[in-house]
Design a binder for these strands. Structure first.
Lengths: 212, 212, 212, 212
DNA sequence: TATGAATGAGGTTTCATTCAT
DNA sequence: AATGAATGAAACCTCATTCAT
């Protein structure tokens, strides 16, 4: 029996069992040191100063624990980005904002970056997890913005919104991954300009003027 | 241009012992069925009809075996792409050719695609493996082509060749990954057009004409 | 005759705490779904909507809980059978009535049948439990009936009452067990006739007439 | 991967791995001391002087090990009984022989008796095991003998062969079980006479003579 | 070159049980 | 009377690895 599946931060969750939070913190702390696949029940329990059985009780297994941690993380940023898009009008400007936001996240949270870009996709059950659901909302929102841009004549109509969304996320991820892997810093401002120039402006020089 | 990085290893690979090849084939066959992380020595030995100790003798551990298999695969296609670029002149046309080639590989070899895009990057030692070395040559070749394009005025000078290389690979990979994961087919011809339009042409409609 | 062996236990069982009864009901409900050995404290507590510690408090362990449930069950039917034998005179008719009663019980309560015929006999402590005590009274009653039958000349004197009692119960149980295990229905009326014919009448055909 | 599933005593089984036999012997020895359900991997491995992994390799788990041991046991006696029936002509005499044989087995092998009559029927997978298959052959043979007896006029035609078979086995088992459980000796000769008198002869006294 | 046999070691999982509130 | 939180302990199971032949 696993307690509290997706408790959705119940309003008065009576301070949430101490052990539960200790376990979550222990995992976060361990993830900064080694890859998830190498983390054992014993590692987590020891770090949390808690019995292994408690992990089972609250999360069933470390995978679910990870999914829970990731969900909290991703959900938080998803909200932030949605708010951040308010008041921006042009589709390209919105996309630019998304690019900058994601680069900033990966820049300031390289550990989560490594897990999200690399490790979690291998885990059985990921594509049924809440984390992936939120990821899909992200993708869908992006695609919608592109489609609106096309509808409003800001983006040429012969572009596939789906492909463009993939290109954008691929660009972001592939620009961050090596930096994350090798511990190099990411400069979100510079990278945003660079990526958007490549994606949004004509590649050829000497046109009479850039597209914006 | 860049020379073939990894020397054809085994000088006497003609006399390759039967068991060694059987082990390699067994791994390939197993990879089509389940992810590498879930494959055990016993699995491989059983499938190969060989004793487990033999894997240990020849490869030390299954990771090295995988790296060997991947190296053979990647090296083969690396050669093919290098040959394929011969006679193409424009930088953009070369890049387009690379995009098409990679899409075609992922389309026809989804199993290897899954491993290269997803699984192998998690394995300890990957970034010291021959496979990654070849991967880096690939990236460097691409970057060189971009730089040549800039030098020859085909690509605007305010673009970072490094970033552009990452954007291209990110685009390719992110367009293929979902298809590979969920077993959907990839249409290399269509995708090449779509990706290159997004990357190489102005995003805005109504310009007097596309850049090429 | 034989007196009711087990006194109605709880003097104040009217004020039986709610949790206690919920636990009992939970076990009954679970037994319909899986074998006793596979039922855990957590299962019971969850089903009862009660804390695990409460089982411990009331019953010490699930075995005692099971014994309690079985005792209630067995005691109820024991009373019914005793009443049912009233007014029947011949020993063979009494035995026939017992056979029919037991077949009827197993037919209508296959879950308890499974537990009594199969599972409970494996449990440590069963042969010291009230349930087994009642079972022995049952056996003793049966043996007494047979002995009376012998004394009254209804049953031949060279038959061991003890063995005959065992044969009767063995016959009943072995006829029911496969049905219970494989979920087939039991026809008490037909089976009573069949079993009693085999046990009470001569096996050979063509005798001048059946024995009664 | 479990080695050697039902190896059917391969002709030149190269002396069968020492460890395998040690494991089998260890289980047999332990079964004399406690019930199967209480025997752990560690118990068996320790007693056998062998690593626990070896149990997994050869049998998968202790249940399969038990089924293997039981199968060998049951198969041996099944063969003996089949041979023993040779040359006996009358159906009732054949049945009497079966009764005596089974009683003798339970008498001389009370440990196996306890397991076969009590424990094994609870184990998941038993009804798919080889042991149960052999058990069914036994039952079928018995039923066939009864049917032949009916066809040849030795057994009255209004008797259900299926029920009679069940009555016979029930009688045997229920006469042995208490003795096995409480460690009392079984007298096969006396019990055979007693059971067959009850089953085959008229229950009422004063008939002109027993049925045979 | 290749195998069968065997092992050490540790991860994973499940439970019954306790205790403060 | 009842609960939530937590634990200790052990069973189960799997693997990589070794070694004599």
């Amino acid at each position: 029996m696993i307690a509290n599946p997706i408790p959705e931060n119940s309003p008065h969750s009576r301070s949430a069992p101490a052990g539960r939070q200790k376990i979550i913190d222990a995992l976060k702390s361990l993830l900064a040191e080694k890859e998830f696949a190498a983390i054992t029940w014993t590692d987590i329990a020891t770090r949390a100063g808690v019995n292994e059985g408690l992990i089972h009780k609250y999360f069933g297994n470390p995978r679910n624990l990870l999914f829970q941690v990731l969900k909290d993380f991703v959900q938080y940023y998803w909200e932030r980005i949605r708010l951040d898009l308010g008041g921006i009008d042009g589709a390209l400007d919105k996309l630019r904002k998304i690019v900058w936001n994601l680069l900033t996240i990966y820049s300031s949270e390289p550990v989560f970056g490594r897990i999200l870009l690399l490790e979690v996709r291998n885990l059985p059950g990921y594509f049924e997890s809440d984390t992936y659901t939120i990821h899909r909302y992200w993708a869908r929102l992006t695609k919608t913005i592109i489609e609106e841009g096309i509808a409003r004549g800001e983006i040429r109509a012969d572009v596939s919104a789906f492909d463009m969304m993939n290109v954008i996320y691929g660009a972001i991820e592939h620009c961050c991954l090596p930096a994350i892997l090798f511990g190099r810093p990411i400069d979100p401002d510079r990278l945003t300009v660079s990526i958007c120039r490549i994606l949004f402006e004509p590649i050829a020089p000497h046109t009479d003027g850039p597209s914006r």
